[in-house]
């Protein structure tokens, strides 16, 4: 359900200033159709979860460029459930790309045949959190003060309302509350953008990383469909943090994977 925002334009080259506010899927589809007359792109502006199995059955393969683990797990488990061992066409390869700053990865998943997304879930780390006792009694970092304000003070003041960082007045409150706490403990470095970063867990997106991962995804899709070359087996990671590095290895299917065991 993503729409185009001003801050997208530095890296999402299919969009122009006049497109701000419109659906990303629809604008991208239009742009590609205009440029490549014989390519047909059908946009769908909506939630993944609103489409049923029949919808996903029509595809040869799925490339996912999602922004959350939750959505990846959903599409993965949907495609695993779609597989019918009697019917070759029911198996839809899933190519999953993801980036985080200068790092990125591509996974090629043949549901039920090799490791699915859920099989590799244990290797994913969640959001950074700080010990409860540190943030209440012994804060040392500006992040500790922001955590205290957002997860403890806010709940005491507004037990029935969620802190919503899309509301400017909530951001104002958080900035004030955490600044006050930082002052108490003589900690420096609270800014509005740090408040937003800590609570919203903002992940930077970089055009070059996105381009590399998008290219490997398309490359894998092409190889799967044409059988022209060996397919990625089954995980590739890329890191541009510190010079350039890539590494490929195969995730094993997990014997007790809750999603794909029994298939």
């Amino acid at each position: 359900m993503d729409t185009i925002d001003l801050s997208n334009l530095n890296r999402q080259f299919l969009f122009r200033q006049s497109d701000i506010g419109r659906s990303k899927a629809e604008v991208a589809a239009q742009f590609i159709s205009k440029r490549f007359k014989d390519v047909k792109v059908t946009p769908y502006f909506g939630k993944l979860q609103d489409k049923n199995e029949e919808y996903y059955k029509q595809f040869t393969l799925v490339i996912s460029g999602l922004d959350s683990i939750e959505a990846r797990r959903w599409i993965n488990s949907t495609l695993v459930n779609l597989v019918d061992a009697e019917d070759f066409d029911s198996l839809k390869p899933l190519i999953d790309g993801g980036t985080e700053g200068f790092r990125g990865q591509t996974k090629v998943i043949f549901p039920t045949i090799n490791a699915c997304y859920e099989c590799s879930l244990d290797t994913i780390s969640g959001q950074t959190t700080y010990p409860m006792c540190t943030i209440t009694n012994n804060p040392r970092l500006p992040e500790h003060c922001i955590e205290y304000a957002s997860s403890i003070e806010w709940n005491q003041l507004h037990p029935n309302e969620k802190l919503d960082m899309d509301k400017p007045e909530h951001v104002d409150w958080l900035y004030q509350a955490s600044s006050q706490r930082a002052q108490e403990f003589k900690i420096e470095g609270i800014t509005r953008s740090l408040c937003l970063g800590v609570v919203k867990n903002i992940i930077p997106a970089i055009a070059s990383t996105n381009a590399i991962i998008a290219a490997t995804c398309c490359n894998e899709a092409f190889k799967i469909v044409t059988s022209s070359n060996p397919i990625l087996d089954n995980f590739m990671m890329y890191s541009g943090n510190d010079s350039v590095f890539t590494y490929t290895f195969a995730y094993e299917k997990k014997d007790d994977c809750p999603v794909c065991v029994g298939f």
Binding site: E70, R73, W74, N76, S77, N81, V83, D84, A85, T112, E118, P258, V259, G262, F263
Partner: peptide
């Protein structure tokens, strides 16, 4: 294969 349910992965 055991096909069932429409549960979320969680």
């Amino acid at each position: 294969s055991t096909k069932d349910r429409k549960l979320t992965p969680a």
